[in-house]
Computed example of a mutant assay.
Amino acid sequence: MHILVDRIYDKTGLDPEKVKPAVGIILNFIAKNSTQAELEALLNAFPAAEGFLAIDETTENKGLLGGLASKMNASVGVLAALNEMTSLGLSVEEIHKVARETLDYTREKVGPEMTDEIVARVPGLAEIT
Results as ranks from 00 to 15, higher is better:
Ala74Val: 12
Phe46Thr: 15
Asn28His: 13
Ile3Phe: 13
Ile26Val: 11
Asn33Phe: 03
Gly24Thr: 05
Glu117Phe: 05
Leu82Gly: 12
Ile26Gly: 03
Ala22Val: 02
Thr58Lys: 15
Ala54Pro: 04
Val76Pro: 05
Leu14Asn: 06
Val110Gly: 04
Ile118Thr: 03
Ala45Arg: 05
Ala45Gln: 11
Arg107Met: 05
Thr129Met: 13
Thr35Ser: 13
Gly63Glu: 05
Glu117Gly: 10
Ala80Glu: 07
Thr102Leu: 00
Asp104Asn: 12
Glu108Ala: 12
Gly67Tyr: 01
Lys11Trp: 10
His96Val: 10
Met1Tyr: 07
Leu125His: 05
Leu90Asp: 08
Arg100Gln: 14
Thr129Tyr: 12
Val78Trp: 01
Asp10Trp: 08
Val78Gln: 09
Ala120Asp: 10
Asp56Gly: 11
Gly67His: 06
Glu40Lys: 13
Ala48Asn: 11
Val110Arg: 08
Glu117Lys: 15
Met85Asp: 09
Glu60Val: 07
Val98His: 04
His96Leu: 06
Gly77Leu: 02
Asp56Leu: 00
Leu27Asn: 02
Val19Trp: 02
His2Asp: 15
Leu90Ile: 07
Thr129Glu: 14
Glu101Tyr: 14
Asn61Gln: 10
Leu79Ile: 09
Asp116Cys: 07
Ser70Ala: 12
Gly67Asp: 06
Val92Asp: 13
Met72Leu: 14
Glu94Arg: 07
Asp104Pro: 01
Ala37Leu: 10
Ala74Glu: 11
Thr58Gly: 10
Leu90Tyr: 03
Phe46Gly: 07
Ala22Asn: 04
Val92Thr: 15
Asp15Ser: 07
Glu50Asn: 14
Leu103His: 03
His2Pro: 14
Gly13Thr: 08
Ala41Trp: 03
Val19Asp: 02
Arg7Tyr: 14
Ile26Phe: 07
Val122Gln: 02
Lys97Asp: 15
Glu113Trp: 11
Thr35Ile: 00
Val119Cys: 02
Val110Phe: 05
Asp15Glu: 11
Leu39Met: 06
His96Phe: 09
Arg107Ala: 06
Arg107Trp: 01
Gly63Met: 02
Glu50Arg: 15
Pro112His: 15
Leu65Trp: 09
Leu82Asp: 09
Ile95Lys: 07
Leu42Trp: 00
Ala22Ile: 02
Glu117Asp: 13
Thr59Ala: 12
Ile26Pro: 02
Thr115Trp: 01
Asn61Val: 11
Asn83Ala: 08
Glu101Cys: 04
Leu79Asn: 14
Leu27Arg: 04
Asn73Ser: 15
Asn44Phe: 13
Val5Trp: 00
Val92Ser: 13
Leu103Ser: 04
Asn83Met: 07
Phe46Pro: 09
Leu79Arg: 13
Thr86Leu: 03
His96Thr: 14
Leu68Gln: 08
Ile55Ala: 07
Pro47Met: 01
Val23Asp: 01
Glu84Cys: 10
Leu42Gly: 08
Lys11Ala: 12
Ser91Met: 05
Leu64Thr: 14
Gly24Lys: 01
Asp104Lys: 12
Leu90Arg: 05
Ser75Asn: 14
Ser91Gly: 11
Met72His: 13
Met85Glu: 04
Ala74Ile: 09
Glu84Gly: 12
Leu125Pro: 00
Leu65Asn: 09
Pro16Ser: 02
Ala99Glu: 04
Ala54Lys: 12
Asp10Gly: 12
Gln36Ala: 15
Arg7Ala: 09
Ala48Glu: 15
Pro16Ala: 03
Gly89Glu: 01
Val19Cys: 00
Thr59Cys: 07
Glu38His: 05
